[in-house]
Every structure is written in C-alpha cells, then in structure tokens.
Design a protein around this nucleic acid. Structure first.
Length: 419
RNA sequence: GGAGAGAUGGCCGAGUCGGCUGAAGGCGACCGCCUGCUAAGCGGUUAUAGUGUCUAAUGGGCGCUAUCGAGGGUUCGAAUCCCUCUCUCUCCGCCA
C-alpha cells in the first residue's frame, strides 16, 4: 500500500511509476475521493466537537437537577446529521482503500526499465555449466528411473502437479531443507521460525496476496488460506507492532511447504518438479530501517546464492525490469540455476525489497527516535526453493549410467555419496 | 463438541446507578534534582492514527476527531447497557 499523502502531494511520482510498470491506473477518481474525504471529515468532526461540548453541558445540568430538554432536542438533529455524514465518509474511505490495495509498489530508481521478462538484466553469473559427454536426462526421467520421484502416484493421490518423493529422494529433500536452514541460522545469523501453513485473510492482505490475487491461493472451507510462501506468516509475525530501533534488522529464516493454485499457468512446466501445487521452500525474511534496506537486499541475495555455491550449481542473478516486477516489490533479483536438459537457467529464488509497501499494509513500524514512528522496510527471498534445487542437483550431478552424485556439502546430511 | 470466566495504555490493574476517564493507581522506561559511587528519595515526561491551522530549518506549536478485542445497536451522550463475531483461560469430552 502506498502513502496517501504521497499520492496527494506528489501524484507525478506515482504516475511515473505506473508508466514504468506499464500499468494503467487512473488517478482522477482517487483525487476526487481524497478531496471529498477531507471535506466530509472537516464537517463531521466539527459536528462531533459540538456534540461533545453539549453532552458535557447536559451532564452538568442533569447533575444540578436542571432541565436540558432544549439541548437534547437540538442534539438529536445534530446526531442524525453525524450519522449521515459518517456513512458517506465510510463509503468514501472504502473506495480510497480499495484503490490503495490494488495499486502496485513504486519501483526503486535503479530498477531497469522494461516491458517484460525479456528485458531483465543479468547482474552476475557464477561457475560454468558442465559439459556432458552424453545426452543429459531431465530430472523427472532420472527421478522415475531411480524410483525416488513418483509423479504417477502423486496424481493418483491428489492430481496433476503433485508428486511423491521416495527413499533417497525424500532423504535428499529433507537434507536440503536442513542444509539450508543450518547455513542461514549458523553462518548468516537468521533466526529460525516454524510458522502455521494456514493463515487468515488479514495476513494475506498484509503481504499483498489479497485482495488482488485470490485466484492463486488455495482456500479451505473454514476460511483459512494455505500459504503460497513463508513470506506470508513470517512477515505478518510483526503485523500491527511497533518495533524498537535496536532490534532492527530482524532476520528470519523459515522452512515451510508452499501451496499455489497455479491458475493461469495451465500449459507451463507440466512435467517435473518445477511447478507443483505443493512444494517446499526455505525462506529468508528481513525487517530493516529504510536506509538499510538496499544493502540488506544485496546481503540477502548473496546469502541465498551461497546455497548454490556450496552445492556447486551454476547460476546467474537477474535484476528484474519494471515490467516484470511483482506487485508488492520495489526491486527484485531472481537467482536462476542451470538446468542442463532444458539448456537454460530457471528461477530458483526471488529476492525482493518491498520498501514500506507491505509494512504500511500490515502496520509494521519502528521508533527511529523516542516519540516518533516510521514504517520499516520488509524484504524476503527464497533461500531456496527446495524442489527446484533437488531437480537441479539431479540434472547437474547425473552420470552416464543414470545415477546421481551427491554434492559434497550434502553428504553429512545424506550419509551416502551417490543415488 | 459441552459448561463457565474473561479481553482496558509497554506491563499490572481501577472504572460506582451510562455524563469533565485517553482513561485513577502501581510497575517499568526516559529526563532532571539530590547523593563521594550505587541504592533509596524528590520533580517531570511516557499510546496510536486522522485532520485543521500557525510557524514554516518537513521538525514542531496550538486545536479538533477517533480508538478501552472487532463490528453493529440503544441514547443528547457508552470502556460502562443490548446483539453478533473473534480470541484467551478453566473444567469435561474427543483426538495426532
């Protein structure tokens, strides 16, 4: 959510931002409603002021056993007028609020301009894709032949876009989760969180999934939402709180399962582990002072990169352009890992700075100085998507006979050196 | 699932038959005084948001409005009365 004052006083900033995002939102109605709101507010508050004063007088007279009938009659009229105005004001604020909830964040100045994915900019690249002296197989083929991935039975149990991990596959998944959590809590200093996987609508609104992206979410009959990422419960941990200056930055890491409806991606990545309705992810979340968020995003990204480095998986880092930027994000780096069978880099982590956009929605503030409050900046990134990481390991570490070497860093967790 | 109790400021905790309670009192925290130091003691400060106006070093000054779990109702007026919902606690039942 953006600052109403900013839109009021510097509408050109938002206009410019929307243009960079290739998004078309008309501000005329907003400005009209904003003016109307303040007019109504001035009128109704003046009346309420009168009502309060007269109530005091009425109270005094009653105590002194004096008649207050004349004032009460007058106040009846005032009160009914207040009620009318309050209703108009409410309607006006609902409209403004709906607008704010559906307006995307303003990209940071250093975000490259562009219309879509093709305009993203490569920032850096780590290691070189390995050259194969045989035809590399896709991870789903390897997984099925090794009997560690079972898509058929996943479909039997739940449907398309579900899988079952078995034996060394399940062990590898679990080892990756532990490996990532150990790295982030140990070396990088994040605090581990294990949150609920189901949350309420308020939490989903706080981080920006609702109201705009409801169709991407699974919802239970009881009204709970399944989390699409740990970002939701972990960021909302501090919803409606005022943090102290000293405790910032707060850095959390969390393993959760993630659930996505994947509406609108029907034909894409129908095979393998790339796009499932349920997948595991280790997430990194930070709450920072505004002035620190840019540097913290860089650190968060390199923290995520280190997972791939330790696993020996080639990757590149992309700066998303304005046209590809997520709704709530002000700046995003995607980390893309190499998939030999597809011959391309695929997203395995998305690291974003949301500036105060989520914090304003979720009411997450801090005290920069005694007596003052300010919104924090929130950041998050995958560190990493576990299933995609497993897939990348299978493909990059496969051998000619179809077995898979276990990366050095995972051997203490796996207890075996090949699958 | 059944029965009961409760939800007030950073925390604890008062709020009588609705009226000067944004909210007593205490604790904590901060500032100042005192003290050789510490402690004790004394004085003061200590919620958030919206909005008007003034000054304009955008940081405030002076006002107003709202908020006592959330929403609605009664009333000239509600933390106080009524309804709905949410959450917490206790006991019973069930259950990984």
């Amino acid at each position: 959510m953006l600052d109403m004052k900013l839109i009021r006083e510097n509408p050109e900033i938002l206009t410019e931002a929307l243009k960079r995002r290739h998004s078309h939102i008309d501000l005329t109605e907003f400005h009209a409603n904003d003016r109307l709101r303040r007019e109504l507010l001035i009128e109704v508050e003046a009346l309420k002021n009168r009502r309060n004063e007269f109530s005091r007088v009425i109270g005094e007279r009653k105590r002194n056993k004096q008649d207050a009938g004349d004032l009460i009659t007058e106040m009846q009229v005032v009160s009914s007028r207040i009620k009318e105005l309050d209703e108009q004001l409410q309607a006006c604020e609902d409209t403004l609020n709906a607008f704010l909830l559906e307006t995307p964040n303003i990209p940071l100045p250093d975000v490259p301009d562009g219309a879509g994915e093709q305009d993203n900019v490569e920032v850096r690249r780590w290691s070189e894709p390995r050259s194969f002296d045989f035809q590399p197989q896709a991870h789903w083929e390897l997984g099925e032949k090794l009997d560690i991935l079972d898509f058929e039975r996943g479909a039997k149990l739940a449907g398309a876009r579900f899988t079952v991990m078995k034996g060394a596959g399940a062990l590898l998944e679990r080892s990756l989760i532990n490996f990532m959590l150990d790295l982030h809590t140990g070396k990088h200093g994040y605090k581990e969180i294990f949150p609920p996987f189901l949350v309420n609508a308020d939490a989903m609104t706080g981080t920006g999934q609702l109201p705009k992206f409801e169709e991407d979410l699974f919802k239970t009959t009881m009204g709970y939402y399944l989390i699409p990422t740990a970002e939701v419960p972990v960021t909302n941990l501090h919803r409606d709180e005022i943090l102290t200056d000293e405790e910032l930055p707060i850095c959390y890491t969390a393993y959760t399962a993630c659930f996505r409806a994947e509406a609108g991606s029907y034909g894409r990545d129908t095979r393998g582990l790339i796009r499932l309705h349920q997948f595991n992810k280790v997430e990194l979340v930070k709450f920072t002072r505004p002035e620190d968020s840019a540097a913290e995003l860089e650190k968060l990204t390199t923290d995520a990169e280190e997972v791939l480095q330790l696993l020996g998986l080639p990757y590149r880092v992309m700066a998303l352009c304005t046209g590809d930027l997520g709704f709530s994000s002000a700046k995003t780096y995607d980390i893309e890992v190499w998939f030999p069978q597809q011959g391309q880099y695929r997203e395995i982590s998305s690291c974003s700075c949301f500036t105060d956009f989520q914090a304003r929605r979720a009411g997450i503030r801090y005290r920069p100085a005694p007596g003052r409050t300010e919104y924090v900046h929130t950041l998050n990134g995958s560190g990493l998507a576990v299933g995609r990481c497993l897939a990348a390991i299978l493909e990059n570490y496969q051998t000619a006979d179809g077995s898979v070497i276990v990366p050095e860093a995972l051997r203490p967790y796996m207890g075996i050196d090949s699958i």
